[in-house]
Amino acid sequence: MTFIDETQAQQVRQRVLTARSDREKFLLQMKQRQQKGWEVAQQCARILFQEFRVKRVVLFGSLLDYQKMTENCEGSRSSYSYWK
């Protein structure tokens, strides 16, 4: 088992306190990103219907619940190219 010294413990406590105080702002950002993701998903569904007559598109993952999104999840990326 690895132990941390008091300086490291204080740094961890400070990061936790900062994250707690920033939570509302973070959730607002994730909600805005979720909305943008929904818009993109709807555009994609329209294209799939128009070009391939797809009858059903299923959305899954962190985009369904903005409170479960993180900065690193695909639903929260401000720009990402799947066609690289």
Score class of each variant (00 low, 15 high):
M69F: 04
A19E: 10
T18G: 01
Q43E: 06
C73N: 10
Q35F: 09
L17N: 07
Q67D: 07
M30C: 04
Q42M: 10
L17P: 00
T18Y: 02
W38R: 09
A45L: 02
R46M: 12
K55N: 11
E71T: 13
K36S: 08
R15G: 12
T70L: 02
V58F: 10
L48P: 02
M69E: 03
E74F: 06
D22N: 14
Q43Y: 00
N72E: 08
S62M: 11
L48C: 12
W38Y: 14
Q43G: 03
F26K: 11
C44N: 09
L27W: 00
K36C: 06
F49T: 06
Q29R: 09
Q32N: 12
V54R: 01
Q32L: 13
L63Y: 00
F49I: 02
W38E: 15
L17M: 07
F60G: 13
A19R: 04
F60H: 11
W38V: 07
L59R: 09
L28T: 15
R53S: 14
R53T: 07
L27M: 11
K25Q: 13
L28H: 11
G61P: 03
R33S: 13
G61I: 07
S21I: 02
C44S: 12
E74M: 04
T18F: 07
W38Q: 12
A41G: 02
N72L: 06
C73H: 03
K31F: 05
L59V: 15
M69S: 02
D22Q: 15
L63K: 01
A45K: 02
A19V: 03
Q32Y: 02
W38T: 05
E39L: 15
K68F: 07
L59G: 06
Q35D: 12
Q50N: 08
Y66F: 15
E74K: 03
F26W: 08
L48H: 01
A41R: 00
F49S: 07
E51M: 05
E51W: 01
Y66G: 04
L63G: 01
M69G: 05
W38P: 00
S62V: 08
Q42D: 10
K55Y: 04
Q42I: 10
R53V: 05
Q29Y: 00
K36T: 13
Q43K: 05
R46A: 14
E51Y: 02
N72D: 10
M69K: 06
K25A: 14
E71R: 07
K55W: 03
K31A: 15
L64R: 11
R33G: 05
L28C: 07
E39H: 13
I47D: 05
M69N: 04
K25L: 13
K36V: 09
G61C: 10
L27S: 01
G37S: 12
R53A: 09
K25H: 10
K68G: 11
I47V: 15
Q32M: 09
R46F: 08
L28I: 06
L17D: 04
F60R: 12
R33M: 13
K31W: 04
R15D: 14
R56A: 10
K36N: 10
Q32E: 14
